[in-house]
Amino acid sequence: MERMVLPGEEVWKREVQASGTYVRGGITYASVPGMMRDEKFIPLEMAYRPKVGDNVVGVVVDERHAGYMVDLNLPYNGVIPTRKVRIHLELGGMVYGKITFVDEVGNVDIGEVDKLPAGKLLSVPASKVPRIIGKKSSMLNQIREMSGCPVFVGNNGYVWIGPRGNMHLVAKTLRLIIERAHTSGLTDQVAKYLDENR
């Protein structure tokens, strides 16, 4: 059963640690608009907070002695520390990496960095990223396959689309997913859309 929950409404009658919720007096309440599906709370809108282990797509914006500064669609730039990552990057280049460290004020270190060739960078709401990726990347693989584009999605809400295949189709499909992120059977809807528009 599905039901929409707004900030301040009760989610569970017990204490549960879940994103988009908070606990007071032994009861868990929602802090952002979300959807209850099979007793699970799915936030529909949520400002992104970086976590260790998140995959991110970013743009190199500055080079310093300590490392490269990377725009991650966050209030502050992330850092690729030279101390740990031996890689040469160009300013304006795009990278794919993993968050290795987040301090208490939200400064981010990035490791396991791969360079991405020049492509198209799109910004999507970070709360919709799980739907864009899908269960075991099902949605993403489907998009990659049908469009012929290499696509990388960061949890931070940046999407890199490689310079091959039907890039426009990818962008249009992403828009569709964002608009219908709260509906069920989305993978099938998208399959149909891709099929009709390829």
Partner: peptide
């Protein structure tokens, strides 16, 4: 604020 996904204790 709710539309922006800024966490709020209540509306």
């Amino acid at each position: 604020l709710a539309n922006a996904g800024i966490p709020m204790k209540d509306m």
